[in-house]
Write a protein that binds this DNA or RNA. Structure first.
Lengths: 236, 236
DNA sequence: GTCAGAGGTGTACGCCGTACACCTGTCAGT
DNA sequence: ACTGACAGGTGTACGGCGTACACCTCTGAC
């Protein structure tokens, strides 16, 4: 560094976070270490601690940056369309930053930004006339889906059927007949009968619509918590 | 050790996994390191590598052990009751081993045990007469719910309203009115109007029933993928 | 001209996963 | 009874991690 002309302008929290998001986008979450991030910024690791308290706070900041990319609530939509649209926007954001999901799942406490987002989503429901009681349970049921997460356990299917050797297919069919039956039944994608994967967008919309349609029906029927208890009891 | 009487009987994979599960139950996932686990077993860290390939495989093994605790499918139930019951059993297991969730979310590929569980769940649906097409999408929609996961983002609410100082309540009401409105509306728990938390069991059952009821309706209406496309199009 | 403080540096500690060479007791085959 | 393979436990070492702490060096207000 020394005195070779002008000094680079000093770091700040925003630049650190931006660099971290870019690094994670490029190289994945496991590439995020204080040392590597510092290197990417041309700075010594400890310099970062002047701008973020510690690594956890860095991760929180990265998530906040991502959540802020979700489009704000739209005017003039009924509650269902508004929630659907915002959730799909969130999903698009999460596809750009797939690492964000794992941070959010691992972090213990929600940040202010996340609370604000949640609050805004809740108010959309309330503004639509749903009871606070119903909204409460709906938010639990939706869970992290409002952040655009697919609730899949493993982002990648083990392997596409077409990539398997005949013996492997044989083995799969013998061992996991259910999985094979269902994995090869995807008539909604006529371009490839047994393509490389699922139509993730379709699956996401199927899931969110399954829930929102259910919610709408409960709302129309003036649902109350006590109703659910009664139904559940009748099932057993 | 030397020759002080009898040697302890040798380790084996099962004992290593049992110890790891016990340690995680006691001290949480962050307490699981090869070194600490070895110490708990009275053995040198590298000894573990004779029984597990590496840490990732250890974690997989722990999850498999946990998933194996879920009760097997029951005979004589219709598909909906069968799925509901097994899912609730899975949830009970996950409450005993809350750390398992984070491993499953972080692990890239599903293990054989997990595939077998998934397969069994799928076959329950198929045996109930649901089309492979519908089951495919339903499995995506249910996601990790079939493993008993609540889809909550943060296991603990930030703080129970009753634990907040009046100024904090004031601030929350001004900043997150939606959250406050909904957090204080829980008439299904008459024992405590503003208790310390939610009735998690209720929330879980609400969510799973919301989905299963929706699925049942789709099934009764002979749902096909194309229907969904048409509906979605009509919404826009 | 001084001095506080913001921002960057360097060293060091304890923890982690695990590669690799090694030792030791058991037991099958002769 | 001898031997040699091998399963299972050991010890050392390396590179990576987060971060505490002492330090240096500019900048700008007074």
């Amino acid at each position: 560094m020394a005195k070779d002309g002008e000094r680079r302008d000093p770091l700040n929290r925003a630049r650190v976070l931006r660099a971290a998001v870019a690094l994670a986008d490029e190289s994945g979450l496991e590439a995020i270490s204080m040392r590597k991030l510092a290197q990417a910024l041309g700075v010594v690791p400890m310099a970062l601690y002047k701008h973020v308290a510690n690594k956890d706070e860095l991760l929180d900041g990265m998530v906040d940056a991502v959540v802020s990319e979700v489009e704000p609530p739209q005017e003039g939509l009924d509650w269902k369309a508004a929630v659907r649209r915002r959730t799909l926007s969130a999903r698009a954001v999460m596809l750009r930053h797939p690492w964000a999901r794992r941070i959010m799942e691992a972090q213990a406490a929600p940040t202010h930004v996340i609370l604000a987002y949640t609050d805004s989503m809740i108010r959309t429901f309330l503004a639509g006339g749903l009871s606070a009681d119903l909204v409460h349970h709906v938010m639990h049921a939706l869970g992290s889906r409002i952040f655009g997460f697919t609730q899949e356990l493993h982002e990648t299917a083990p392997t596409a059927p077409s990539d398997l050797s005949p013996e492997q297919v044989q083995y799969m069919m013998a061992t996991f007949p259910g999985i094979v039956a269902v994995a090869t039944a995807r008539p909604h994608d006529p371009t490839s009968v047994v393509g490389s994967g699922c139509d993730d967008q379709f699956e996401f919309e199927f899931g969110i619509d399954l829930m929102l349609d259910g919610v709408e029906r409960l709302h129309r029927n003036d649902w109350r918590s006590a109703d659910h208890d009664r139904e559940a009891a009748s099932v057993l």
